[in-house]
Simulated scan of single mutants.
Amino acid sequence: MSKAEIFNKIRRGLHRGEPTAEQRAVALARIQAHKPVLIPARAQLDHAAQVELFRTMATQAAAKIIELNHLSELPQKVTEWLQHQQFKQLVSASDNWINDLDWSPLGDIQRVQRVAQSGDRASLTGCMAGIAETGTLMLHSGNSSPTTLNFLPDCHLVVLRESQVVGSYEDAWQLLRKTHPDGMPRTVNMITGPSRSADIGQKLQMGAHGPCELVIFLLKESH
């Protein structure tokens, strides 16, 4: 059943006909207004404090943070992490800023760019924003970064610039609307730490529905 058919059934159930042009205009104006709602006090900080709060909340959610002073350090830091895990392959997003880096430190570790597949051990992506109030990453789908990279591999490596850290979820949505004025991405994902579940026997199971490890490479604001 299509979305239009579902809405038509709801409309009939409410005994309402097709909306008038005036009603459509009112609804559209309300959607486009994006009026802010109540923002938690802990997110209303200066930017430096928001970055520190993000570090704290992300770490509490079992994410690992690796600091970068410059983006050029990323290949070496990623290589060191992959070697420690004894991984021989990295599935990477194909953003220009990733491809422009010198990946020679990988040596015999293979870096491939494609959608993720079952059995992939590690993926590398960027993200849209880091949300300080809960240590959450906002990512969205696109031609260069398929959503599968966020969920199928065992380990997800994410690059986050300090300049991308915002205080609240509302701030993140406003940023997304601003950077995509012609329409929202098909998929937007909110990721807080590695996947986990305690549904079975109340025992915490990491990687239950996605990556069992989330590594955030946090790039200093000045770079």
Rank of each mutant, 00 (worst) to 15 (best):
G107R: 10
D108M: 06
D108G: 05
I109F: 05
R111E: 06
Q113K: 11
A116Q: 01
S118D: 13
D120A: 00
D120Q: 08
R121T: 08
A122E: 06
S123W: 05
L124R: 07
T125E: 11
G126V: 08
C127R: 04
C127N: 08
I131A: 02
A132W: 07
E133S: 07
E133A: 08
E133K: 10
T134I: 09
G135S: 04
G135M: 07
T136A: 04
T136N: 02
M138S: 02
L139M: 13
H140E: 05
S141K: 00
S141E: 12
N143H: 05
N143T: 05
T147D: 03
L149P: 00
N150V: 05
L152S: 03
L152N: 07
D154M: 14
H156I: 00
L157V: 03
V158Q: 04
V159R: 02
L160H: 03
R161K: 14
E162W: 09
E170Q: 15
E170F: 08
E170N: 10
D171T: 09
A172L: 09
W173K: 00
Q174C: 10
Q174R: 15
Q174S: 11
Q174H: 13
L176Y: 02
L176Q: 02
K178P: 00
K178D: 12
K178R: 15
T179L: 09
P181Q: 04
G183Y: 07
V188M: 06
V188L: 06
N189F: 07
I191H: 03
T192D: 07
T192N: 09
T192M: 13
S195D: 12
R196A: 15
